[in-house]
Design a binder for these strands. Structure first.
Lengths: 353, 353
DNA sequence: ATGAAAGCGCTAACAG
DNA sequence: CTGTTAGCGCTTTCAT
C-alpha cells in the first residue's frame, strides 16, 4: 500500500537512487528530473520510511523528552518550547512521563536509547551515577540537575528563594517552614540550601518539613505538617505544593496571608490567577526547554556554535498576595485579584553562563 | 560502540538469530541458551535498534499525538493518560504541537506518517476531507471531532452547556453572550449549538461573539467584545478564555459575578483555584486520552475487544462562584475560595456509547 | 532448538 | 548527473 522509493522510481522511469537524491539532496539531480520525480512522489503520496532511513543513516531524527509529571504545569510550557525548537531542526520529540519514579526514569531511558538520537531529562529523579551511565551511551542533556560531565540547563531559583526569605523577614516573620519537594530533586536541594543559609543569617527559626510530592495533594499534607510548628510562613518547594497548602489551610480555617504566609516557586500559569495570587520565583521553563534542545543539537554535532555546557536561567521574584505581615491582627487585606500578570518584582534577570 | 545482535551472538558463541529469538521470543530457545544470551546481552548493554526492528517488522511501536497547544491545561492530563496507556502496550508517543494551525497540523501529520503506527489527533483544526485522507494512509483516532469513517472519542459538553444556560436563566439573566473558540473546532460548534437552542427556548437574547483563541489573551479580547453588548452573562468556549475574560473585566472595573457572570468549559486544573472559582463543564480529559489510545490499538488489531468506533464522555456541570444573580445591587458576595474541588453539581455522568 | 540466508526501504560510496 | 551495488541491524522463513 505505502509507496516506496522503488514505486516512485518505476513510475518516473529513473533509478531508485535518483529518487532518493531528489528527495534528500535535491541539489544533486538535474532540475528537470527533480521536478518530475517530486511531482510523481507527491501524486503517489510517497512518505519516507524513517525506520529505513534511520537504519541507513544512523540518525533517527528524534529526541526523547522525559519529565516527572506532564500534568505539572511547570512542564507543558517547557515541552512546547522544546518541541518547537526540535521541529525547527527537523527532529521529533518522544515524550515520556516518569511518574516521579527514579526507577521508571531509568527504565524509560534505556528503553528509548535505541530509538532516539538524544534525550532531555527534566528534573531527574535517578542517581548521578545512573544518569552518567546513560549519558555515555546516549547524548543527554539534563534540566534542573547539575552533573559534571553532562550538559545541562537549570532554572536557578536559589537567589530568588533567598530574596523570598528576606521578604518574609521584612514582613516580620521569624519562624518559617520550608516544605521539601522530592529528595531526589536537585532543585529541592538548592532551594533548601538557599533558604537555610538566609534563615541562619537572619536568625530565623527554620522548620524543614517533608518531603512532599509536588502536587496539590502533597501540599495538603504539607499544610497539616505546618500546623504543629508554629511557623507564621511557609516556603513551598513549588507553586503546586503552595497551592495545595493554601487550599488545605483554608479548609482548616487558617487564612493566607492573614494567619500564615505562603510562597511558591516556578510561577506556573496558575500562580497569578489563583486565590490569593502566589508570591513566587519565576522559572522561565520555555527558555530552559529551548536551550536544552539546543544543547542536544550541539552535542550531536549539528553544527551549532559551541557554548558552555552548563546553562543557568535565573528567575526573578514576584511578590503577590500570598505573603503578608506576620500574624498581625490587622492582616493585610489582600485584593481579590492581582491585575493580570501583575506583582512587584525583586531582583532576577536572565543570565546564561 | 553500540552493541548489536552480532556482537552478542559472537560473545555468546551462538548465531545471530538465536540471540534475536532469545530477546524477542524467549519461548523459542532452550532455557540454558536463553539465560546465557540474556546475561551477556545485559553485560554488553545491548539495546535493540528500533529502526532496524521497525524495518524488519513493519511496526514502529510508536504513535503520534497531535494537540493544538500543549500549554493549554486541557491537554497535559490527556497527554499523560494517553502516554500511560501507550506505554502499557509498549508504544511510545511522539508529541506534536500544531500551534492551533490547520496547516501545520496537516504538515505534521504527513511528516510523522512514515514514523509511527498511528496517530491521535486532538481537537483537529483541519478540514474533514484532509483528515479523512490522512486516515486512509495512517490509522487515526480523533479526539473532539466527529467524522464518519474515523474512530473518535469526544468530550461531550453540549448537555452541560445547556444546563449552564438554564442555570443563568434561573439567576435572572436574559441577555447573554457566547464567546466562540476557533471556528474549526468541533467542540466550539457543538457548544454554540447547545447554547443557541437553550437560549431560544428560554427566550433569552444571545450575542455570538468571536472567534477568539482559547488563551488568556483571547479572553482579554473577548471581555472587550462583551462590553458593547449589554449582556449580563457570558459563556466562554473554554476555561482559559473564561479566565482571560474575568481578568480583563476586573481591569475594566467590571466585577464577576457581581456585574457579569462568566462560565467556562473543561474544568481545567486551575478552574477551581482561580478567582473567582469558575462555573464550568467538566471534560474528563484523561478518560479521553486513554480511550483514544485504546481505539488506536484496536484499530491496528492489537487484539483488544472491538467496541463502538465513536465514544463520548459526557461531562457534568460544576457550579462555582463565577456565576451569580443578574446585575443586582446586592450581588452575591462570592466566597474568596471554594473549598478544594468543591462546587455544586448538575446533571452529568460518564457515558460511553 | 539452532543456523543460514533473504530481505525490510533507504542511503552512500563507487562507477560511469 | 545518474545507475549499480553494498550494506545498516533486525526478523523470519526455511533447513537442519
Amino acid at each position: 500500500l505505502a509507496a516506496s522509493l522503488d514505486t516512485v522510481a518505476r513510475a518516473a522511469g529513473v533509478s531508485i537512487s535518483t529518487v532518493s537524491r531528489a528527495l534528500s539532496r535535491p541539489d544533486l539531480v538535474s532540475a528537470g528530473t527533480r521536478e518530475r520525480v517530486l511531482a510523481i512522489a507527491g501524486e503517489l503520496g510517497y512518505r519516507a520510511n524513517t525506520s529505513a532511513r534511520g537504519l541507513a543513516t544512523g540518525r533517527r531524527m528524534a529526541f526523547a523528552l522525559l519529565v516527572p509529571d506532564v500534568a505539572n504545569p511547570f512542564f507543558p510550557e517547557l515541552i512546547r518550547a522544546a518541541e518547537d525548537r526540535a521541529q525547527q531542526s527537523g527532529y521529533s520529540l518522544l515524550l515520556c512521563d516518569t511518574g516521579e519514579h527514579a526507577e521508571r526514569e531509568r527504565h524509560l531511558l534505556s528503553r528509548v536509547a535505541g530509538q532516539v538520537d538524544g534525550a532531555v531529562v527534566c528534573s531527574p529523579r535517578s542517581s548521578a551515577s545512573g544518569l552518567a551511565e546513560v549519558a555515555t551511551e546516549l547524548p543527554t542533556v539534563l534540566v534542573n540537575r547539575l552533573i559534571k560531565r553532562i550538559p545541562s540547563v537549570s532554572c536557578v531559583s536559589a537567589p530568588g528563594m533567598t530574596l523570598l526569605v528576606e521578604h518574609l523577614y521584612e514582613l516580620g516573620h521569624r519562624r518559617v517552614a520550608y516544605l521539601q519537594g522530592p529528595l531526589a530533586s536537585w532543585s529541592n536541594r538548592e532551594r533548601l540550601r538557599a533558604v537555610r543559609e538566609a534563615a541562619r543569617r537572619l536568625h530565623m527559626v527554620l522548620h524543614v518539613l517533608g518531603p512532599f510530592l509536588p502536587t496539590l495533594h502533597g501540599g495538603h499534607k504539607a499544610a497539616e505538617a505546618i500546623m504543629g510548628t508554629g511557623a507564621t510562613a511557609a516556603l513551598a518547594f513549588d507553586d503546586l505544593t503552595a497551592m495545595g497548602v493554601v487550599g488545605r489551610l483554608w479548609d482548616l480555617g487558617v487564612h493566607v496571608p492573614g494567619d500564615v504566609s505562603v510562597t511558591g516557586c516556578d510561577d506556573i500559569f496558575c500562580a497569578a490567577l489563583c486565590s490569593p495570587p502566589l508570591t513566587t520565583v519565576r522559572s522561565l521553563a520555555p527558555v530552559a526547554g529551548t536551550r536544552a534542545v539546543e544543547l542536544l543539537l550541539e552535542q550531536i554535532g549539528n553544527g551549532l556554535a559551541t557554548r558552555a555546557r552548563h546553562l543557568g536561567v535565573i528567575g526573578e521574584v514576584v511578590i503577590r498576595s500570598s505573603t503578608g505581615a506576620a500574624r498581625s491582627a490587622d492582616a493585610v487585606k489582600h485584593p481579590r485579584r492581582a491585575s493580570s500578570g501583575g506583582g512587584r518584582r525583586l531582583g532576577g534577570h536572565d543570565v546564561t553562563a
